[in-house]
Structures are given as C-alpha cells and as structure tokens.
Write a protein that binds this DNA or RNA. Sequence first.
DNA 1: ATGGTAGAGGATCTA
Length: 255
Amino acid sequence: MILATWNVNSLKVRLPQVINWLQEYQPDVLCLQEIKLQDENFPLKEIEATGYQSIFVGQKTYNGVAILSKTQGCDIVTAIPCFEDVQKRVIAGTYGDVRVICVYVPNGDNIESEKYAYKLRWLPALNEWLQDELTKYPKMAVLGDFNIAPDDRDVYDPSVWEGKVLCSQPERDALDKLLALGLVDSFRLFEQPEKTYTWWDYRMMAFRRNRGMRIDHVLLSNELAKICKSSQVDKETRKLERPSDHAPAWVELSD
DNA sequence: ATGGTAGAGGATCTA
C-alpha cells in the first residue's frame, strides 16, 4: 500500500502534474493540500478518468484539502470536531482498515503575528482530535503539510532559521506532542540522504541551491510503522516546469 | 533592511 502527500499550491494549475503522478506512482491514497478552489470547481471528472475517487473540502482562494484514492473512503470527516475554523484544512477517510488523515497546518507567517497564534491554537485542537481517532483506528496515518521542520537536519541553514516560524520551539513542541500520542515520523525510520527537503521557496533560486526545509510529513501509528517498508521524497516533481513549491512525500506499507 | 516568485483574482493577501 502506498500513501502519499503533496501540497500542490492550486489544484487547477497542477492538475496535469497530479494526474501524471497518479499514473506513475499508482498510490492507493494521495493527500493534497492547498487545492485553492471551491467544491463546485473540483476537477472530479478528470480525476475519475484516471480511475481515482476523490473526497475534498475547499474554499475560495486559499487552503482546501482532498484525498484521492483507488477505493472508496468511508467515515469521512472534513473539519476538526469542536474547533471553530472557517479555513478548510483537514479531511479524513478510512481505506480498508487504515485511517488516513490529511492536514494542512497553518503556516504562521512569523512568530509575532496573529497567524502564528492561530497556528499554536490549531495544533492542540488537532492533537485532541487525533488522540480520539487513534483510540478508534489503531492503523492510522497523518499526512500533509505540517509547516514545521522537526529538527535542524530538516533545515538548509539552521542558524538563519533558529527561533523563526517553521522552526520555533513552541511549534516543535506541538509536533512532539503529536508524536507522543503514538505516532512516528516515517522518514526517520530509515537511513536518508542528507539535505532532503520537501519545500523550497519559489524565490532566490532556492531550489537550485537546495535551500529547502522538510515540512511535509507522513506520521504513522505504531501498527503502521511496523509494516512501513520505505519513506521517501519525490524531488523530481519539483524540477518540472511550473512546479508546486512542495514535492510529494510517500510511504510504502507491506500488505 | 529589502526583495526576490507564484497563485488567486482582479487590489492585495498568502505563502
């Protein structure tokens, strides 16, 4: 079973790349973030034509998440329960006996901003929900753009980013609390190439200089971590013409 | 310190 995540930064623009990616990798599940479109504009037919099902929750201009899958998902949830939020940032479905939760964690802008405060309110709400989900679904995967680099290995220049948004201690503590629920960062289950990142700013030729950060993650419950065969980042997709600023990340689980 | 790019939507806001 292959589970993947990709912040596409506009599904409208990236649709041809998404369809190509589905055909090349044949993932069982692909979680998308920043689809940036309203539900009535979701390219349902185009995705269906590739043999994939879709669930999605979108809004105008910003945010929006979706899960594309080979089989129909059930028990779909499109918001964090008991958390007031006009921004569409989570969607979950169950595929076979695997619970898949797709998240787009707020970016936070900078640590002085109201957006950062929102991020630090949002993460405990996610935590509470995931804790509840884990009791129901021992086989659980949380995939998405977390907008948090877990540690200095995940940052091209840690001294520049020390204490800044995406790297600050409160954010890293919030991520650690998610892991403390009984989740593992699948990427670190394996030996990995140094300087592997999932996001590179469009500006300053950041990709060409590999000035990136690993902020997109596949977290696995212990039951899924046990059967995880690999966890990788598809850097090639970031090299395409008109790319998203994020690369897909994916895991392979044994059946 | 600033600005560099991309996307949405039609001036800025977000990242």
